[in-house]
């Protein structure tokens, strides 16, 4: 033991530990402060990302095949259910088109070029996931080249699932709302109840055990019911307005009885991420 911790070795070990801790803190500071990582890091990530696609493609293909087989087994029931939904959807679509045209005309009258609800959707495939207990983070195959910027919201299927935490040229990392990191799920959201009143707030935590989003510190006295729709409010940052987050499950007092706490059932499915959509806000 004495030989192992000889003087010179001890000094080297301590210097290494100090360097590592300094590097860790530096990278956290850089990640929090800058909108893009240093060029050399981007370059490295891009190259590794390309190589990853070679491995990820067959593995994801296998997953796709397995899902296709299990999907085939309950096709009939799903088909029945979807048929009824399609009819409703066509109506909504036509109405949506009319409304958006009307909206465009009205904006023109007001000479308003873009508002909070304007965004374009960039579809990306998930390449892989960080193997770590501490980070819920996935890597997607679109980056700066497709107009993605840091902190943009990411949607999967129906609803919000996370935000962009790092952008490289051709791939980026997405922190899911279930991540431990404090800033991962702070989205400004808005709940509209049956009588048209709105409650604004910020997502305060993610309940991993029940898979629920929690909006805490709500002081508004507006009554909220189960099933009220939750959308992003577009206040602050690069999140556009009107992205679907989920529906209200319960609304009641928080643990201390001072403010109320709204529990939201997320619409996005965190457990099955293959294709995600990044909402790119228009400048």
């Amino acid at each position: 033991m004495r030989r192992f911790f000889s003087n010179r070795r001890l000094v080297i070990i301590i210097v290494c530990v100090i360097i590592c801790i300094a590097l860790m803190n530096l990278s956290v500071v850089i990640r929090n402060k800058r909108s893009t990582p240093p060029l050399i890091q981007q370059f490295g990530n891009d190259i590794v990302g390309f190589a990853d696609r070679v491995v990820a493609l067959p593995v994801n293909g296998l997953q796709g095949t397995a899902e296709a087989i299990s999907g085939l087994l309950n096709t009939y029931q799903e088909n029945e259910k979807l048929k009824s939904q399609v009819e409703k959807l066509t109506q909504t679509q036509v109405r949506d088109e009319t409304l958006s045209r009307e909206n465009k005309q009205l904006k023109k009258e007001l000479s308003l070029n873009s508002s909070l609800t304007d965004y374009s959707a960039v579809t990306a495939a998930v390449i892989s996931r960080t193997p770590s207990s501490w980070q819920s983070q996935v890597i997607i195959n679109k980056g700066q080249a497709s107009g993605i910027k840091k902190n943009m919201p990411v949607l999967s299927g129906a609803g919000l699932v996370g935000r962009i935490s790092e952008v490289n040229k051709t791939n980026s990392k997405v922190e899911l709302i279930s991540d431990n990191n404090d800033s991962a799920n702070r989205f400004a959201i808005q709940i509209t109840n049956g009588s048209g009143q709105t409650v604004n707030g910020v997502i305060s935590e993610y309940d991993k055990e029940a898979n629920r989003i929690v909006m805490g510190n709500v002081t508004s006295k507006t009554k909220l019911k189960k099933g009220d729709k939750v959308i992003t409010s577009g206040l602050g940052g690069v999140t556009p307005k009107g992205l679907y987050v989920g529906t209200v499950e319960t609304a009641g007092d928080d643990d201390y009885g001072l403010a109320s706490k709204v529990v939201i059932k997320p619409a996005g499915d965190l457990s099955n991420l293959n294709i995600v959509t990044v909402a790119v806000a228009k400048e």
Partner: peptide, 10 residues
């Protein structure tokens, strides 16, 4: 560190 975690030094 660079590709998976984004935190350098671990």
């Amino acid at each position: 560190d660079l590709y998976y975690t984004g935190i350098f030094g671990i």
